[in-house]
């Protein structure tokens, strides 16, 4: 059975405030899904309902087909959870904290030590394995929390803004860890309000605002569906170019609707025609001898869609 997460008519009210309003969402398979939305949109509420940390006013949440409200123990058995950057008992070392998690999850004693060493390696905390967690920085604690979510090699990973509150280096490290996690066959459901993070790491995206799901689709589909048929890429150059040069060369290429110089070595190109057009565009760009180093999907595409969808609800 492939891993899955499901919300059926999931609703949560805090007093008169509706934090989540009839969410229906089914995610199945091994992939990474970004759960996007502005602060207060209902992202963390959804994840807490999925993991039975709070209780639904209406509806039900399922992990691998098991209702987390009715049988939280079985539902969370195959899930790794990181919500709200938890604190670990300060007197424990990473080895001890992960040992406790492994023990409570029923990892065979014979495999425990090696498995803990592996996950500490994955989050690059091996050399801190026997230091007290109480002395750790926020970023280090977060890495131990990720290791704790991974220690039993779960089918499903639920991550709530894993890089929030970290410095740029910490954010990059967490992103790199999540990218590595994708290589293993599991379903990762990660909430974030950092668009670049989602573009960088996820295959699919779900957007939520004011407790309502606005869309859930693959990144490619979302981009083509909401961008009026336009796609957007950023070309990085080895040498600086001028705006005139860009206007006379790149902007006139077939399928290109606009080319904007973001900085002397970066051009944002809007075009139509899908993947085939993108392939022709890259070849043509190389042919212009501008010193193209790389062409990447523009982060702004999702950003534009995000802002457009969010502002529609205002």
């Amino acid at each position: 059975m492939s891993p899955s997460l499901e919300a059926r008519d999931l609703t949560k009210q805090f007093g008169r405030f509706t934090a989540l309003n009839g969410l229906n969402l089914k995610i199945e398979g091994t992939k990474c899904v970004g759960f996007l939305g502005p602060n207060g949109a209902g992202k963390t509420t959804t994840l807490k309902l999925l993991t039975d940390m709070i209780f639904p006013t209406r509806g039900e949440a399922f992990i691998n087909g098991v209702s987390s409200r009715r049988d939280r123990k079985r539902a969370l058995g195959d899930a790794g959870v990181l919500i709200e950057s938890p604190e670990i008992y300060s007197s424990l070392t990473p080895n001890e904290a992960l040992g406790m998690v492994a023990d409570l999850r029923g990892l065979p004693a014979a495999d425990r030590r090696d498995r803990i060493r592996t996950v500490l390696g994955e989050v690059k905390m091996t050399e801190w394995a026997d230091q007290k967690v109480g002395r750790f920085s926020k970023g280090m604690k977060q890495r131990i929390n990720i290791a704790a979510a991974l220690v039993h090699d779960p089918d499903v990973l639920i991550l709530d803004e894993p890089s929030t509150g970290l410095d740029p280096r910490g954010m990059a490290e967490v992103r790199s860890i999540v990218r590595d996690l994708k290589k293993s066959q599991r379903l990762i459901f990660m909430s974030s309000h950092i668009l670049s993070e989602v573009v960088d790491v996820c295959d699919e995206v779900a957007l939520i605002d004011k407790g309502k799901l606005l869309f859930y689709d693959s990144l490619d589909n979302v981009t083509s569906r909401f961008a009026d048929g336009h796609q957007s890429v950023d070309a990085m150059l080895a040498r600086p170019v001028g705006a005139d040069q860009v206007g006379q060369t790149v902007a006139t290429l077939p399928g290109v609707s606009s080319a904007t110089l973001l900085d002397p070595r970066r051009i944002r190109i809007k075009f139509t025609g899908g993947l085939a057009a993108q392939e022709r565009l890259v070849e043509a760009l190389v042919g212009l001898h501008l010193g193209v180093l790389q062409v990447t999907e523009s982060e702004s595409a999702l950003e534009e869609i995000y802002l457009q969808q969010i502002s529609r609800g205002d």
Binding site: R74, R115, R117, T118, L120, G121, H152
Partner: peptide, 28 residues
């Protein structure tokens, strides 16, 4: 990635009975 990857035994883990978990948790 540091260290060799350790795969867990085939099949899903058996989460201990609640009584056992109480004992384990109390010990920690």
């Amino acid at each position: 990635m540091a260290g060799a990857t350790v795969d867990l035994p085939a099949g899903r883990l058996h989460v201990p009975q609640s009584g056992q978990q109480v004992t384990k948790l109390a010990r920690y």
